[in-house]
């Protein structure tokens, strides 16, 4: 187990983490606003508590941070003006840096996305979906058939991808 302390997290997260630790009044508005909080193991409010108490390791292991879709409803409602969505993004980044989450789906999706951007400078959603599905569970592709048919009928399914011409500029 890696021992992570609050200071390391504070160094990573600019002022978002500090604001959350210092300003959160634990009202739970973020948890009540979150469209996905009912599926989380800890609510967003509780994640702030964990971080505040220095239980960083526990916070990083939660499902919660990977269920945040960064819709920022929490951020615009927070009476203490904490951008909880950004707070979650910093926790995600910190988790990946410290090697906590290699088997989770969402980090795999993000890595697939980043690979595409690095390789072509742009992405193709259908190709991204297929590549990701092949990585995790090829049977998932079968479930996509009805949608693929629908997209095909609408004339918007294409596997072509226009790559960036001056790719070296993107990479530099």
């Amino acid at each position: 187990m890696l021992l992570i302390n609050q200071n390391e997290l504070l160094a990573e997260g600019n002022h978002v983490i500090r604001t959350a630790i210092e300003k959160c009044i634990q009202c739970g508005t973020c948890s009540a606003s979150c469209p996905l909080s009912q599926y989380m193991d800890y609510t967003p409010r509780q994640i702030v508590t964990l971080v505040r108490e220095g239980l960083i390791h526990e916070a990083l292991k939660t499902k919660t941070i990977w269920l945040c879709s960064t819709c920022y409803l929490c951020a615009v409602r927070c009476p203490a003006k904490i951008n909880i969505g950004e707070f979650m993004t910093v926790l995600k980044r910190f988790t990946l840096k410290n090697g906590y989450s290699d088997n989770l789906l969402y980090p795999k999706l993000m890595r697939t996305y980043v690979e595409y951007v690095d390789k072509y400078g742009r992405i193709s959603e259908p190709r991204l979906m297929i590549k990701f599905s092949l990585k995790i569970n090829p049977f998932k592709l079968l479930k996509m058939l009805p949608l693929s048919m629908k997209l095909l009928r609408d004339g918007v399914l294409s596997f072509s991808l226009e790559r960036v011409q001056n790719l070296h500029e993107v990479k530099a």
């Binding site: 469209p35 269920l67 879709s69 819709c71 999706l109 979906m129 990701f132 599905s133």
Partner: peptide
Amino acid sequence: CCGGMLMLT
């Protein structure tokens, strides 16, 4: 929010 990319995960 519609869930965004979480639809895949």
